[in-house]
Design a protein around this nucleic acid. Structure first.
Length: 420
RNA sequence: GUGGGUGUAGCUCAGUCAGGUUAGAGCGCCAGAUUGUGGCUCUGGAGGCCGUGGGUUCGAGUCCCAUUACCCACCCCA
């Protein structure tokens, strides 16, 4: 069908694009204040980057990637997330050779072949930040604080920050062992999904939404119970810094993220009122990822938020974003003969920085006025009649209906004056 | 990948249960309501293979089957 878009994609129309611009501009501003710099990476990458970076056992790699062979027989994947490409760019361009840490942000479309539903699309848009090169728990707190700050600036309320620590390569084996010995006696009672997780990633069982699994997992040991001293200390410090910044948070020891690369801090930000897909952002520390991608042992932390979900939350909470206004002035003709004169004038107005438009449908004067009102013109300028003989025209302020005669040569400066 | 719901004018929806002349409304769009002017009001107009394909029937928007798209949920995540 030529007239229907691919499943799970959206057209962002002029009427709603203001929201996107507001979100993107707010993000750019916040990022500048927190000293993050923008990076732009390709929309597609070698498939291998995501398989290695995101992890083979994740749903993303397992069943959600848009992968194809290009004409050179290379396996290419439309990026399903932003971290791995940024890590790749950091390494490829040797950003590690400059001053550390490197604080980056990005925005753009991501692609996952998933069944669409409220807040979930096959092409969706993320804003994300990454920090490379610091172990400092203050950075973890800063990233979370920045995320919450961002939501606040958009005017969003009731956002919940959930945090957890998923351990490190030191304590993970222990967590794994303790979880397995906890679940082993009741293994056959778990859902089929979790039975598979038992060997691969028992952590995920605790996070299962199945009510039976939740019940069985009630008393399961948590990662927080088994953290090594270093992880424990890091987590405590992160909490400490969040308190200093007065960022409210909840410790959620069942929070496990679906991407394999997380170590230590994991967090998620939820909007309570946007439906089943309530997570509007999430992230964590990934101290092993850069090495996994072929670099040296450099720590990293990042998070990403979904723009579509933010818009859902904005809409749900009734937050109005001002739409872009209509033209400053609409030039109306008293007679079609005046067209050349109007044409000339309009282009002059535009050169003077005034947004101006006119009729292209040969409408009657009355219809031109209706049109001017509908597109939200601030002023209408009438060209024609006796005034034109005097090289002048009438300027009408649409809101008040006040009119005055102005020489054609003064129109631009007069409107600029009025617009302030 | 699984389940539920919905497809009738540009939009929101009646009409579907009890099949029967030219398929309706509101909003929007366009045009008029005598002299060179919008928002209100009034009048008129354009616009619909009733998602698509099959079937039942003398006759299908309406009943049956299939298919497809969208919505919502599971899963997972942004």
């Amino acid at each position: 069908m030529l007239t229907s878009r691919p499943r799970g994609t959206n057209d962002i129309l002029p009427g709603e694009v203001g929201k996107w611009q507001f979100i993107e501009e707010t993000m750019a501003k916040v990022c500048r204040e927190y000293n993050f710099r923008e990076i732009r990476t390709p929309i597609f990458e070698p498939t291998e980057l995501f398989v290695r970076g995101v992890g083979e056992d994740t749903d993303i790699v397992d069943k959600e990637m848009y992968t194809f062979l290009d004409r050179g027989e290379r396996s290419i994947t439309l990026r399903p997330e932003g971290t791995a490409p940024v890590v790749r760019a950091y390494l490829e361009n040797k950003l590690y050779a400059g001053p550390q840490p490197v604080k980056l942000y990005y925005t753009g479309p991501m692609f996952r072949y998933d069944r669409p539903q409220a807040g979930r699309y096959r092409q969706f848009h993320q804003l994300g930040v990454e920090v490379f090169g610091s172990h400092h728990p203050g950075i973890d707190a800063e990233v979370m604080a920045m995320a919450m700050d961002f939501y606040n600036r958009l005017g969003l309320k009731n956002m919940e920050l959930h945090i957890n620590s998923v351990g490190c390569p030191q304590c993970r084996p222990q967590v794994r062992e303790r979880l397995q010995s906890y679940f082993r006696p009741r293994l056959d009672e778990l859902c089929p999904n979790c039975q598979g997780r038992f060997d691969r990633n028992p952590l995920r069982i605790v996070d299962c939404k199945n009510s039976r699994c939740q019940e069985i997992g009630q008393e399961a040991p948590t990662t927080l119970d088994c953290l090594c001293d270093e992880c424990r200390q890091h987590f405590d410090q992160v909490c400490h810094y969040l308190q200093i910044l007065h960022v409210p948070y909840q410790i959620d020891n069942r929070l496990v993220r679906g991407l394999d690369y997380y170590t230590h801090t994991a967090f998620e930000i939820m909007a309570l009122d946007i439906g089943a897909q309530s997570s509007v952002g999430g992230g964590g520390r990934y101290n092993g990822l850069i090495e996994e991608c072929g670099g040296t042992s450099i720590p990293g932390i990042g998070y990403a938020l979904g723009i579509e979900r933010i818009i859902l939350a904005l809409d749900k909470q009734g937050i109005q974003i001002k739409e872009s206004p209509g033209p400053d002035v609409f030039v109306a003709l008293l007679s079609p003969d005046n067209k050349p004169k109007a044409f000339e004038l309009i282009f002059k107005l535009r050169q003077a920085g005034i947004s101006a438009d006119q009729d292209y449908q040969n409408r009657s004067l009355k219809a031109q006025m209706k049109y001017a009102a509908k597109i939200g013109a601030g002023y209408t300028f009438f060209v024609g009649g006796d005034e034109l003989k005097r090289e002048a025209g009438i300027l009408r302020e649409m809101a008040t209906g006040k009119q005055e005669e102005i020489p054609l040569n003064d129109v631009a400066s007069r409107i600029n004056e009025k617009l302030g």
